[in-house]
Write a protein that binds this DNA or RNA. Structure first.
Lengths: 357, 357
DNA sequence: TTGTACGCGTTATCAG
DNA sequence: CTGATAACGCGTACAA
């Protein structure tokens, strides 16, 4: 049982008095081999419990069948779900997924990229960290001729495909929904504006206000970190103002939760006096006693599509510089925290649209 | 910039008129080389932008510096946190983490193991799936001379190390806590009893009852799936009984949540009439309006320690059959759902203890 | 201290 | 259809 010594194609070739090349051909389904010897070889290979040495193969072919995924943190529902999607899509194709975390630190990002390139992965999926501004280290990936696919958090780079959410639309539909609930003074909790996702949500918010002739009030926009406490403090700030908001659109669920906690403490009724909507559809939002409206980012689908884009890029005989931008549609899940009309909960969604370039 | 052709030690050797062996020695810090040539080689290596080919290296050494992690699902807070712990501990040592999911299906588990062994990983970390009963496929890992470390969900196998929670104690301290709240009819929602973790929690529960002279009532034990609805239905069942429970100890947080929802629907006051405690300390438990008491499993620490155990095993020159069992202590976090005395929230915890064998 | 030569396991090229 | 041989890039015993 314990065959410490692995059997190689040479072992098989010796036993059968054929050359190693013939064995290799049999194993690789080469057309230039008689089916008789082929069957024989395959049979004895199985008998001898032969396993291909993927390392030798990789050394020869230059392909490892490993891909890397770089995310800020793996134990966040959104990211782990995207990774799950990638894994499920790629495993059937023989790929393995190597994961790396950056802790939102661009220095770690550089290290992880170098480490991945060192180990010869066949591609990299990534969501950039908050502190990433320059793209030189990302360019290294391309210079190395390694396919790169951004998901969710991307940087503008020519020749790089990406799968993202239509965050502008996300911000727009949330704001529109709040307006239709009768809200006229809608505050916005924004995330780190270095990230496109947050500027886009912000822009969507402003666009909706404009479309519905509501004057934009800069005092009602606060940039917060993604902590619960940050949401609570933001409410404290806002309620010092002369005219308090009648709605809050937070770019993150944790802030929304913090805001709700603080509003409750102040005996402000939700959604009657103030409506609240978050973003990300974190699992907890629907478990709350007062379920929180939120925007679902379909992370599983995002991962699957990112994987598909990668596969297309790998298999395409065409130029490597093909660039595909897939934009997924956000789904607004209306729950009690913003539902003044007690509608039946239903997603405001559309099908995903893709736009090749 | 785009050097599609990677530079090898031969390129360096040619340029410097030395042998490739000398270059190799310089790069590997061999003692049998003059510091003059060594410095020269290192310098030009950097100039020529030389990168080691890890594949060739791996082929030669038989070590890939990749490890595999097999879990039921990656996008569950507990598992993704363990993986995060492993990743953070192993990255500084040059290892990469490859992740695989089984979807709680033993057939997938077999496939993933085979795939990992194929790619020559240096070790496997795993939490077995619910449907895993036989251990033949796990034995294959050992026969292949690959280190295996179980975490959380293990199987009894000689020669395999594991890092687990003291689930018996977890069950015990929860039950004891409920008794001290004045509860006398404590129900238990158990998980799949094929898994040790759930039988141990169950045993701990029974032991505490016994120690405090409370008669065990089998009608108060229900085996449920880990869904919210399952917790609600279990309450329905229990409240059909003549004597309803005055406490619920659920082996999972989602069931506990479902139970609470159903109890509220029935206008039963928590914790005054019924105390509820869950298990796992899922993030949502502390966000609820009525925060749910739960047992923390310190997943990050679990991952870190699993990684340490692996490193010890790899580096130990001693027998490979060393077997180390690390048992972590559970932390009961008392929150409002079971706190009749309004104590200040504090963990009932002790330091981790380890027991080598 | 340095160079030579070989092996890790596979695949691809070129003859036969 | 099959066999011999080189090559992928590196490390290392052995010889010099």
């Amino acid at each position: 049982m314990k065959d410490k010594e692995k059997t190689t194609i040479y072992d098989i070739s010796k036993k059968l008095n054929v050359s190693a090349a013939t064995v290799s051909r049999a194993l690789n389904n080469s057309p230039k081999i008689s089916s008789a010897t082929k069957d024989l070889i395959l049979k004895t290979a199985k008998e001898m419990n032969y396993k291909q040495n993927r390392l030798a193969q990789a050394l020869k072919s230059g392909r490892t069948n490993n891909v890397g995924v770089i995310v800020p943190y793996i134990n966040r529902n959104f990211f782990s779900s995207v990774i799950r999607g990638i894994e499920e899509e790629l495993t059937p194709h023989g790929y393995h997924v190597i994961i790396c975390q950056t802790h939102e630190n661009v220095e770690n990002e550089k290290k992880q990229i170098n480490a991945l390139l060192d180990t010869q992965i066949d591609g990299i999926f990534m969501s950039v960290s908050k502190t990433t501004r320059q793209t030189d280290h990302l360019q290294k990936i391309l210079d190395n001729n390694t396919p790169l696919v951004f998901f969710d958090r991307k940087k503008e780079m020519t020749g790089v495909s990406s799968v993202t959410l239509d965050d502008f639309k996300g911000g727009y539909i949330v704001t529109e929904h709040l307006i239709k609930q009768g809200c006229k003074k809608i505050a916005h909790f924004s995330g780190d504006l270095n990230l496109e996702i947050y500027t886009n949500r912000y822009e969507g918010y402003k666009a909706a206000l404009k479309d519905y002739d509501i004057t934009f009030n800069p005092d009602h926009v606060i940039q917060v970190s993604s902590k619960i406490e940050a949401g609570a403090s933001a409410v404290e700030e806002l309620w010092k103002l002369d005219d308090c908001p009648d709605a809050i659109f937070s770019a993150g669920d944790h802030n929304a939760l913090g805001a709700i906690q603080e509003l409750k403490r102040r005996k402000i009724r939700i959604p009657e006096e103030v409506c609240v909507v978050g973003f990300s559809n974190e699992p907890f939002t629907k478990y709350m006693e007062l379920p929180i409206s939120s925007v679902d980012q379909t992370p599983l689908v995002m991962g699957q599509i990112a994987a598909e884009v990668f596969l297309e890029q790998i298999n395409g005989k065409k130029s490597r510089t093909i660039e595909k931008k897939v934009v997924l549609n956000p789904e607004l899940l209306i729950r009690n925290s913003s539902d003044r009309k007690k509608q039946v909960q239903k997603p405001v969604a559309e099908k995903a649209k893709t736009s090749g370039v």
